[in-house]
Nucleic acid binder design. Sequence first.
DNA 1: AAGGGGAAAGTTACCCGTAACGTAGCCCGC
DNA 2: GCGGGCTACGTTACGGGTAACTTTCCCCTT
Lengths: 343, 343
Amino acid sequence: MAGKRIKTKGVSLSEVARAAGVSKMTASRVLRQDGGYSESTRALVMQKVDELGYLPNRLATVFAGDSTSTFVGVSIPDLGNEVFSQVLEGIDRKLGAFGHQTVLGLTQHTRAAEEDWIRTVLSWQPAGLILTGRYHSPRATEMLRAAGIPLVEIWDLNSSPLDMSVGLNHFDSGFDMGRYLFDTGYRALGYVGTSHDTASAATTRLDGFCKAVEGGGGGVAKQLCLHDTATYYTGFYGTEQLLAAGQEIDCIFYQNDAMAFGGLQYVQSKGLRVPQDIGIAGWGGLPIASVLPVRLTSMHVPHLKLGQAAAEMMLARLQGEPAQATRDIGFTLIPGSTVRRKD
Amino acid sequence: MAGKRIKTKGVSLSEVARAAGVSKMTASRVLRQDGGYSESTRALVMQKVDELGYLPNRLATVFAGDSTSTFVGVSIPDLGNEVFSQVLEGIDRKLGAFGHQTVLGLTQHTRAAEEDWIRTVLSWQPAGLILTGRYHSPRATEMLRAAGIPLVEIWDLNSSPLDMSVGLNHFDSGFDMGRYLFDTGYRALGYVGTSHDTASAATTRLDGFCKAVEGGGGGVAKQLCLHDTATYYTGFYGTEQLLAAGQEIDCIFYQNDAMAFGGLQYVQSKGLRVPQDIGIAGWGGLPIASVLPVRLTSMHVPHLKLGQAAAEMMLARLQGEPAQATRDIGFTLIPGSTVRRKD
DNA sequence: AAGGGGAAAGTTACCCGTAACGTAGCCCGC
DNA sequence: GCGGGCTACGTTACGGGTAACTTTCCCCTT
């Protein structure tokens, strides 16, 4: 009003109130349907709201009370992986239906990026956070604790989460796949995946996989972890590298289905028959897998359900209901046709 | 302080200032590196910031100045479609690199959902908005105008955008595909897609497609628009429906690659040879397409680049640079092997 | 007619940070 | 020695909305 700042924003509550000839507080009550006003006042205020095109300023609301916003921060490694875009979709649909907004963060699988993002998002007073993975930087962990808001860690099932956790046991899923391939008769197994600066779920799967194979008396002949993103291309070229070594390999387990399809394409381009000459196994369950002629042997994970479950746990906590701390959404081995059946 | 509200939030600037024995304003200056303080004061304040674990409250910052937030609202129809998840990734990576946060909105292809989302997001005082599509409800359009913030409409290239636009000419891309298939020799063409309550880019492509085919003297024998999402499954079952009618069809154009793969799988499961018995053409360019044995005839669109371009235009406007109003990111026909070449 | 009880509205203080302005103290030159 | 200019701060006043409290006014009771 003093003219020192130029008002560029929209209509404020005071302006609505003035136009209606009532106090700010009365207008506020009408808009929040808080009671304590007459029908004629309500109608008048609402009329002015319409006339002036008033849009409430939620920042001010959050700021005024000690309430949090309706934001929920969601961090995801990347969207190139169809897996995470489905998880995100599951989360946002559910949260959106209950009046919350998703603030996205792509952390590129690095803890530093995650920490920066957490710091920024927390400064917006979010209602809660959903983070992918259980490994965070010490400072991030400290901030999360200090924030005191609901937190769901997804993807890795975490028996002692910071707050809540929903996901699956990656070790077991790797183990089951290792056991399955071993039982199927493979003995010279290989692995192709990617690695990042963080201990990841994929690493845990690999651990389980190795454990199973070694437990059976075999061994994982060769592991290859590329410093790259886990896509069709890296699957293709990773397989080329793995096989170039000349070592005998009768079956390859991949970090995910996209890489497995890339690998499948590579070995077929080299004239190898699948599964007669070499077995191929993926992980994750890509939607396209179900309509391709080749049924990829894989481990199916209910991604959308995972996202929804995360959102449900978050919403329960936000509504003050007692929420369970962890939830296992499981996995299912899809036999497929890219590994040779025993007998 | 009066004890009427329980303070649950974190440490405030005042508390840091008090701990350091300076005024709020001095602490504020130190944190913003605004100058006007001595080195010893700076060190003291920063020490207290560390000790107390102070996190700035960005709500208050936005609120204090007449600045907008660093939020950018991004609306996307859905993430099931790999196309849009890539666009989103392109946007968020670029925006994130410049200190902005993406507030996601999945509008499910409906204008009503978009309008609700716009209303909500605007109440958070975003710095700008990126919306998919050029068709918005009248009220939405009005709110967007009134908000007076940068706006980028993506996907459809829009010669008279509300503010800025980046995308491609869907009519032309459909037209080019129609022309190509016609020139290749197909005469009994079919189309399988989905429809929603909004006039969509897919509809525009279909219009272009029909125009090209009719212009060549042919006609689109049969169009099928399912009220469903555009996935592998709907491609599969849509094709079943389309062919069940018994009408002669020698080539099918699909709304997107996912549907085309589903259709491909269906016709092959019925013993039809592709492209000898029937031609299959998709649209959009799925990453997996490049590593599958069957090279799908399709129209490639640079999704990631589209997202980045949208973010760049937004950032330019936010930094006050003169930004171009529209940008055409184009498309490229991928001949593939699922249509028969005219020899 | 006085008093009690509500409903409907207004008043005040505050949330947290920042812009604008005020001021104390110091150094400098003439 | 005094005014001018600079540095390093402090003070005040918002911004948009809400909680808590107060006031006004009307109706009903006794």
